[in-house]
């Protein structure tokens, strides 16, 4: 190193445990407690600039950094998978700044940070699920102004949301919202569950685990306490229903799970496999075999991923 380079390196501050300074953690911790006390209410917080881009999980990372400790075991998933690049990157970040144990096993994790999925394995009372949230405001696409949506939440004025969903039915014959499907929490606040497929919505209802939501760019934290009623918005003549897949997972034969469509060739060949990679691996380890679970099928999926 040159003298100047040494000066610069020497002058730079060392990072605290879990990256965030203690005052920032306290600010986020207070927001989390208020969030739990007012289920699904979006608590404004002074989100910090993180060393990864806004929109890539900075809210979830700040929440995880504020709750995580030496005894925790962390799992990070993106699209249900532990090995997607952004999940790998966030997991590596926490290994580096908090020296925390990590796992891909859902049941071994005490803190699970997720983007776009809820694990298939039922969560337990000793787990915390941290969601990365891009747009926390469920009313944002109906009313772009924060000043207006805040009023609507205050007055419990959710008519606009029902009108929007009903217009979908009138136009398409279906509620045309398939992910980030709005829910009503503890009979008070309408909440955006983050862009999880609506397939996962029922898992939020009366979930034994604490669910925390962090939106870094939009500077909001919210929570669903364990064992809290979470109801997907619907209508008597158009009840909420989740996506059903016609075929089981091609690798582990699981039904009633969310599947990824994997394109095999350019002639319409495709297979459906579990989006939750840990769930799929556990099932295969237990001897479950899907119709393409031969060795060459494995090779195909590996390549496709």
């Amino acid at each position: 190193m040159t003298g100047q380079a040494q000066d610069i390196a020497g002058g730079m501050a060392a990072y605290n445990f879990a990256y965030l300074d203690e005052q920032t953690k306290r600010m986020i911790r207070r927001a989390i407690l208020k969030g739990i006390a007012i289920p699904a209410y979006q608590v404004p917080f002074a989100s910090r600039e993180m060393p990864m881009p806004y929109g890539w999980g900075t809210g979830g990372v700040q929440v995880t950094a504020s709750i995580i400790g030496r005894d925790d075991t962390l799992k990070v998933i993106d699209q249900g998978a532990d090995d997607t690049t952004n999940a790998v990157s966030i997991r590596a970040f926490f290994q580096k700044v908090a020296d925390v144990a990590v796992t891909t096993r859902t049941r071994e994790a005490s803190v699970i940070q997720t983007r776009h999925r809820i694990p298939e394995e039922p969560l337990t009372v000793s787990q915390v699920l941290v969601y990365q949230v891009p747009i926390p405001e469920p009313l944002r696409f109906l009313e772009p102004r924060e000043t207006e949506t805040r009023k609507m939440h205050a007055l419990e004025e959710y008519g606009l949301m029902h009108v929007k969903l009903y217009e979908d039915i009138a136009r398409h014959g279906h509620i045309a919202t398939t992910y980030a499907y709005p829910v009503l929490v503890d009979d008070r606040y309408v909440m955006d569950p983050s862009p999880t497929p609506k397939f996962d919505n029922p898992k939020m209802d009366m979930c034994p685990a604490l669910q925390l939501f962090g939106a870094g760019r939009e500077k909001r934290i919210y929570a669903i306490p364990p064992y809290t009623r979470v109801v997907s918005l619907d209508f008597e003549d158009h009840p909420f229903e989740v996506q059903r897949f016609e075929e089981p997972c091609a690798l582990c034969a699981a039904r009633d799970v969310y599947l990824d469509e994997v394109i095999l060739d350019d002639k319409g060949g495709r297979m459906f496999v579990c989006s939750d990679t840990d769930h799929c691996e556990e099932r295969r380890a237990a001897g479950n075999r899907g119709h393409l679970a031969a060795e060459e099928a494995y090779a195909t999926t590996e390549a496709a991923q």
Binding site: W56, T178, F199, Q243, D260
Partner: peptide
């Protein structure tokens, strides 16, 4: 970033 879970739902 991957959005294939959401895209699958839309698809």
């Amino acid at each position: 970033l991957p959005h294939y879970v959401d895209f699958q739902a839309e698809l």
